[in-house]
Amino acid sequence: MAKKRYDKGALFNDYLLTLWRGMEHIESVFGVKGLLDQVFGVEAPKGGAGELHDLSQITPTAMAHVEKSCAWVNMSELYDYAVEGLLVDGRQAEELVLYGQEILLALSTEGSSPCQEWTDIVSMGDARFGLHDGASISPEKIALLANVDLRTVRNAISAGELNAEKIMGVMLVDHESAIRWLHGRRGFKPTRIINMQDVDLQEIDSALALATLLKERRQKLALDEHRDILPSAHPAVNDQILNDLEEGLFALPLDAAFPLADFYRLERTDFLRALMRCFYPEQYKALASNA
């Protein structure tokens, strides 16, 4: 049974509130001042022990300050890796997971801690790294990666679809068995390396500019070798569609944007925005003005 995917926006809001409470707690325990201002910037939220913490009290400037911090960049990339299967070229998956775990521990106090979803994401990241590293994996982590409940995994073990055994009292699924089973699950997203170097999609504002960028990127990264991944990623994408796109024509539903971004190894959201700017300018302006 598939479960609802995690919402990055909601997780950022949880991170903000937990960060606020955590920094206040440290200021109170150690009798120091100014920590909130450093973490949130000059417009840090002001509260007090026992007071209600409301997101509306955190200004957009303070949110933007937090969003640029090394800690949040790591948590954001950890989310992309664990949930979406996207790893920026050159980033170490193990470091993302370990640093993410440290951040969650640092934010955990007696009165406040990050939501359970963050713990799940760290577990998913650790499980995904384990798949790359050839390690056996727990049924709980397989369930997270496959986006199914634990009962589904246990049923697969009972049916012999997954090879599992107890090692020092802990049930673990064989690495190769886990990979085969996960790749047969609709909810599982295989890991893909994305290369975002020297690409600024925010400057792309015409169909010709986008077409030129994509054509150059296909040649530079030798992506013709991987065109076979697209039909399974989206049923409407084929060689002719790719050729049309690289000539400045886009005749696909917008749900093809993310598979295309993965194929060209571009950041998904920035690529979607570029498509909207280039091919749906009026709709993009309407959305941007209401944001």
Rank of each mutant, 00 (worst) to 15 (best):
L144E: 02
P45W: 04
G184W: 05
F129L: 12
I179V: 15
S28C: 06
Y79T: 00
P139W: 01
M75Q: 12
K220D: 09
A207R: 14
D262K: 10
V73M: 11
D200P: 00
L266Q: 07
S138E: 06
D133K: 15
V73T: 06
D228V: 13
L208A: 14
V32F: 07
V173R: 01
D7S: 10
A106Q: 14
L16C: 01
A207Y: 00
I179P: 03
S56K: 13
D205C: 13
A286K: 10
L230R: 00
C278R: 04
R185Y: 02
D7F: 04
K3W: 09
E161A: 15
L144V: 09
S232E: 10
E140D: 10
K220R: 14
M196E: 13
K4L: 10
V73L: 12
Y6C: 01
R218W: 07
G9P: 00
V42G: 03
A207K: 09
P231Y: 13
D198H: 13
G160K: 02
L210W: 00
A233M: 09
M63A: 15
Q202T: 12
N163I: 06
G169L: 05
H53K: 15
L182A: 03
V32G: 01
A143L: 04
V148A: 04
G9V: 01
D205M: 11
R91N: 08
D37W: 01
A2F: 09
